[in-house]
């Protein structure tokens, strides 16, 4: 899946890209398919197993797409977090 980008610099990962939108679209579908897939599978209905399979597939694909980007965003943000926390406390105490 060469059209899915899996290597990110922190600066590039900060932008909203198609990988975010793919995750945003897949995520609700995976919830719906898992909800009804699990319930209908418990009643041994064949369509339930199909839904469940689709739900698992979508979930796996979603994490495959979004995880590298989230890792890059997290690593980059953590470097600046302490500075932001200091500013937050200044605001809390009306010092800015």
């Amino acid at each position: 899946m060469s059209w899915i980008r899996r290597n990110w610099t922190p600066h590039e990962a900060d932008e909203w890209t198609k990988e975010d939108w793919i995750a945003v679209v897949l995520s609700p579908f995976s919830y719906v398919f898992i909800t009804f897939g699990v319930a209908m599978s418990l009643f041994l209905l064949p369509i339930g197993f199909l839904f469940l399979g689709l739900g698992i597939l979508m979930t796996a694909l979603m994490f495959y797409v979004i995880d590298p980007k989230l890792k890059a965003v997290s690593e980059s943000y953590e470097r600046k977090q302490q500075e932001y926390l200091k500013e937050l406390e200044k605001h809390q105490r009306w010092e800015e």
């Binding site: 975010d20 995520s27 919830y31």
Partner: peptide, 13 residues
């Protein structure tokens, strides 16, 4: 019960 579905999008946004 799918009102919890907001988490599906919120998690990534």
């Amino acid at each position: 019960s799918l009102f919890a579905g907001w988490c599906a999008v919120s998690a990534w946004v």
